[in-house]
Amino acid sequence: MTDTMILPRRLLLGAALATPALRGAKAAGEVIVRTPGGVYDDIMRQHVYDPFTRETGITVRPVAATGAKLIAMFRANNVELDLIDTGDKQLLALENMGALAPIAYDQWRWSKPEDIEPEVKKTYQCGNFTYATVLAYSKTAFPNAHPNSWAEFWDAGRFPGPRMLADAATGSPNFEFALLADGVPKDQIYPIDIDRALRAMTRIRPQIRRFWDTGALSAQMMSDQEVVLGSIWNGRLQTLIDRNAPLAYTWNEHMIQVQALGVFKDARNKEGAQRLADFMMQPNVQAAYAKQLIYGPTNKQAQQFLTAEEKARMPGGENSQRSGFYQNINWWEDNRDRVNRAWSRWVLR
């Protein structure tokens, strides 16, 4: 999940170029961690940061920062963060710039590396939970039959009404769903045929009320019935449903994305950062925060701390194995420029 989950990244941009010194006289035992901010920090403080401090005496300070700010820090040789808790794609970009240190799996003492899902356990980053982009619909607009696949989402004749998809500003527009709607099998989505995806997008564009660029906006548009269909992060939608909004979603054809941890190679408290990552990956710790975030744990052993009901609400378990697919961030990272140029031209048409 990118920082747009809670805070619009553009608000942070202004501060990105003129960075005040985050670290004054730094306490010897402090880890500064980049997080998406907001409610996320509260949940993590309760289940990760405070227990970590009690265990080690090392305090944890969460700060917000956009991807550009992280890059700016690295380039300016002024890394003010130790641990980065952000979307896997952003970490891949940092990794490609040579900004990251390998995750010290061999030093772990709380978590077992072999328990981590292989898809998210990488040399320079380790996924700390998964989230899914799902197809959501309004039960008011579709009380009986509702779209159950992206092909049906694209079928405005059968399922009329305004809808929304993700904007490139979220990190990736929903090309995967466009291709699925266009008949591409799930296992042949990558490498994405950008032109084909955009052609499919063009067909549905008149029905698109808005391409959402922040999680908050997507939730607002669904709950206001501004749209009756949309792609949305499962946690965002579940929160609305739990508040009795007349909304629902299907797990069919959901896309799994990863939030991950990385350590700046120039971090001042690299060791503390590695230890915090280790601590965060424990099965019971993961289960506790995943439950509240409604996102999926990446430690296989965490499943045993979850009830069947809780598992049904999360990606990563059986739900995902049956009907989801992992987003291929390597393709996105390799095609960043091409995608954004093509997208900008396409939206301006």
Binding site: G67, A68, A169
Partner: peptide
């Protein structure tokens, strides 16, 4: 301007500042 068009506009309402922001934040270009 870019906050208001980004929040209140449609996909085609891209202003130059938004494009700059995208190049900084999204493509790191």
């Amino acid at each position: 301007f870019f906050v208001t068009p980004a929040l209140m506009g449609g996909p085609g309402d891209i202003m130059i500042a938004m494009l700059i922001e995208r190049e900084v934040e999204l493509t790191y270009n």
